[in-house]
């Protein structure tokens, strides 16, 4: 009955595609299933257009799902480490308070639970996880 415990793994999950791409949903479904299966997620890494998920300003039509909100709630409620590639984020106008102030932009549109950091965080996550899975490539 507890056999599956022997197989608990640390997953690093990267998402490369934006909120409008089916990959954003696939990655979330996978991450949820990983936790439901008793596994750990050591880090989530958002790269390329996936950084748009970290913007608090996007508004979805009422009859469509709000994938960014779902990701945010999933990350917060499970207290996951969600790293957004800082270079990709700056290019696309996804800035937290510190970056908005550093680059003298009028607003910050990103904050908790997202963390802006470098690609090295993805490298580090891939090295330390048992399995690394990329979505949206």
């Amino acid at each position: 009955m507890f056999e599956s415990r022997l197989n608990v793994m640390k997953f690093a999950i990267a998402l490369l595609a934006g909120p409008q791409d089916p990959a954003a949903r696939s990655a979330l479904s996978f991450a949820q299933a990983a936790l439901d299966g008793g596994h750990q997620i050591s880090r989530l890494f958002f790269y390329r257009d996936a950084v748009h998920l970290a913007s608090d300003l996007a508004v979805q039509p009422q009859d469509e799902s709000d994938i960014a909100r779902e990701w945010r709630e999933f990350i917060s409620s499970n207290e996951l480490d969600a790293v957004v590639c800082i270079a990709a984020a700056l290019r696309r106008g996804v800035l937290n308070e510190a970056e908005a102030s550093r680059w003298e932009r009028p607003v910050a549109n990103s904050g908790q639970p997202w963390v802006l950091s470098g690609l090295g965080q993805w490298v580090d996550a891939m090295q330390s996880a048992d399995r690394a899975v990329t979505f949206g490539s």
């Binding site: 270079a87 470098g118 690609l119 090295g120 993805w122 490298v123 580090d124």
Partner: peptide, 10 residues
């Protein structure tokens, strides 16, 4: 390319 350089830097 960026990822390769980041990994190499580490």
């Amino acid at each position: 390319m960026d990822l390769a350089l980041a990994a190499a830097a580490f």
